[in-house]
Nucleic acid binder design. Structure first.
Lengths: 218, 218
DNA sequence: ATCAGCTAAGCTGTATACATCTTGCCTGTC
DNA sequence: GACAGGCAAGATGTATACAGCTTAGCTGAT
């Protein structure tokens, strides 16, 4: 049988699951999150579900109104701009604020991601792109040594991901090509043992992404 | 009679109140937050109190353990370092990321704060210092045009405030003198209509503060 | 036909009862 | 006297019942 019940908090699990569904576009802007349905789906009462929704509300991705419900928001261009402007500033900090030592295992993970990106480039599917990009984010976040920066990196990722993945659906295979390019740059930075370079690589590709969002999505 | 019940969410009010009590040192590291007591104090059930505590837990200022309780944490030197390193980076962004126009009313508020700081310099009391510094933070945060930056500015403020105010109790009147100096610099920046200068002024004084924390508190 | 007003359904917000976990203390044995 | 074990108190975690809000849709008068 599977694990009967993990020791971690139920609320945190649901929180992570909801966030992932939102930024993976399983829930699209305008969709409603009904506590009762989610409670039944997860096999719990409304209490942990409410807690999870409450804790993600500060990201601005959902809006809860009394008597109506909780709906997934589409961030406005202004909001997206604020998020991306911040991510452009955060990226170089990866290599500067309390940098972590790069381990051989990091390089191996990067190589594997690069291989998966190459596969995706040959046979593109949007879902696979979203999942791979998510794993890349997890990888980068794991390299961040400053706790606060890592937290902010995650927060802005969640805020940007939904919009970014909308664009990926429009772009199709081109998105995978860009991902291969980004991962190649990242691998080179790791090979040079240069976390600062990695930060700038992130900044560069975030900039590219933002340009396309402004051009194609708004 | 006073306002019967504001329309805003009870949970958010309690959240703000708890955060303020933590960073104002009404609750000191090691103190326990008991949901039942807080519920009775605020005249509500445990539900909104739990929600409030849950929403502030991601700042790392409190730690909740099942069956035990929620205790206020003292951030380690490493954590404080991460917070301050981040604030040093965030400060210059105030003038660079989607800057807001400075209004005459802003200058008036600043002048008033400067006057209050001067009063405090003549007759120091720690509580007054903490409250004035808090109002200064609210003022600065209000000048930030980028929504994400404002959110991060608040988060790191809450994380740093508790430790900073511990130091202020040790320093005594010297803290008020430094505050007068900081507010003078801020006024000059506003007089020059230069939000970038204000950002750097913030960075400078955050740096001074961090130095003293490292020297006197750890 | 139109529209004001009512009504009921369905959602979130809150209170409360219960389950579960942790820990300090008491007790009995060695 | 020391220590293992149990037990009870008190805390958080969860489920559930209820209150309050919002809105869609019906109804009836104009």
């Amino acid at each position: 049988m599977t694990a009967p019940s993990p020791p971690v908090n139920i609320s945190e699990e649901i929180q992570a699951e909801l966030l992932q569904r939102i930024c993976f576009l399983d829930y699209r802007p305008g969709d409603q999150l009904k506590e009762a349905y989610l409670a039944k789906e997860f096999g719990v009462s409304r209490t942990p579900v409410r807690d999870a929704i409450s804790r993600i509300s500060h990201l601005g991705l959902v809006e809860t109104r009394n008597g109506v419900g909780t709906v997934v928001r589409q961030l406005s261009l202004t909001e997206i701009t604020h998020v991306y402007n911040m991510r452009l500033e955060l990226a170089p900090m990866i290599g500067m604020l309390n940098p972590r030592q790069i381990a051989p295992s990091d390089r191996k993970v990067c190589e594997r991601l690069l291989g998966q990106a190459a596969d995706l480039n040959d046979a593109f599917d949007a879902r696979g792109y979203v999942q791979l990009n998510h794993r890349l984010h997890e990888f980068i976040a794991g390299l961040i040594g400053n706790d606060v920066l890592r937290s902010f990196w995650w927060q802005t990722y969640y805020q940007a991901a939904s919009t970014w993945y909308q664009l990926a659906h429009l772009q199709g295979p081109k998105a995978a090509t860009a991902l291969v390019s980004e991962l190649t740059d990242i691998r080179d930075a790791l090979d040079h043992n240069d976390l600062c370079a990695l930060g700038y690589v992130q900044r560069i590709h975030i900039g590219y992404g933002f340009e396309q969002i402004k051009t194609l999505l708004f």
